[in-house]
């Protein structure tokens, strides 16, 4: 279906059906205290794409995702998911929060975290059956973590924790995957494993949006970018929007510093 839409006289799908974009954000404004973190941002995610949200620290990347998901309440603006209000489309979304946002000392096992992704099926009281366990295990296999199913989550490395989070998102069986800094502080093997899974999702027609920091890997990993620095700076394919000029506007004079930080880490 995606192929047909794109080949339709060269008109981008979101231009023809903006109301059916997996994620369409309009006029989103979020403020913590007095200062807006995200100001009047529009974003239209294309179906079947992999989009990187890029910008300096504190530019509102994570906040934009959280506002779109209803985790933080915006001052203004709205997000539509597949053309409908978020509330009716939650089952089509999988979210991977920042790894550091949870307490990994929490007393639970890897498999239990992945089973949380099946909450919609399990509900309050339904028993966990073998089919659920099999599903969770197969998600762990996809991220190369099946051998760790019975480990306590605190015993994992940062990269392994991130892969468990991704497995939980896979268990949700969603159409739109929103990831907050999936590559932050992970080892090279994990980065490779995660990007392979994400590209597999795209090949299946799913849509992926990730907050991303490493400017060097944007060309290799993503097909679209969204540059933000409180306001939207640029949006489009990597070729159109990921330009030195746009980066300069997003990062201001700080791009050099940002790159040095990256080299150092």
């Amino acid at each position: 279906m995606t192929v047909e839409l794109i080949s339709d006289q060269g008109i981008a799908p979101d231009a023809r059906h903006p109301e059916e974009s997996p994620l369409a954000i309009r006029g989103m404004t979020v403020s913590y205290g007095q200062k807006p973190v995200v100001f009047s941002v529009d974003m239209t995610v294309q179906e079947g794409s992999m989009t990187a949200i890029i910008g300096p620290n504190g530019a509102g990347k994570s906040t934009l995702l959280k506002a779109a998901l209803g985790i933080v309440t915006p001052l203004a603006g709205q997000a539509k998911v597949f053309g409908k209000p978020l509330r009716s489309q939650r089952h089509r979304i999988a979210y991977v929060p920042q790894r550091a946002s949870v307490d990994w000392d929490f007393p639970t096992r890897v498999i239990d975290v992945v089973l949380m992704g099946l909450y919609r099926e399990l509900g309050l009281l339904r028993r966990v059956r073998k089919t659920h366990l099999d599903k969770a295990t197969s998600c762990l296999e996809r991220v190369g973590m099946a051998d760790f199913a019975d480990r306590q989550i605190g015993q994992l490395s940062g990269g392994q924790q991130q892969r468990v989070f991704l497995a939980r998102a896979l268990a949700q069986g969603a159409d739109l995957y929103l990831l907050d800094e999936p590559f932050a502080g992970v080892d090279a093997a994990t980065e490779k494993a995660i990007i392979a899974v994400l590209k597999g999702l795209r090949a299946d027609g799913k849509t992926v949006v990730a907050v991303h920091h490493d400017l060097a890997t944007v060309h290799e990993y993503f097909d679209r970018v969204f540059l933000i620095n409180t306001r939207k700076v640029a949006e489009g394919s990597v070729a159109e929007a990921f330009t030195p000029d746009a980066l300069d506007r997003a990062y201001g004079g700080r791009l050099a510093t940002a790159q040095m930080d990256r080299a150092a880490s």
């Binding site: 998901l69 939650r90 979304i93 979210y95 929490f106 949380m116 919609r120 309050l124």
Partner: peptide
Amino acid sequence: VCWRPLKLSTFDEAFAQTL
């Protein structure tokens, strides 16, 4: 009755909200 929501929202509140 509230075991799963309690556990989920205690471990990962943001994720629980997206559900």
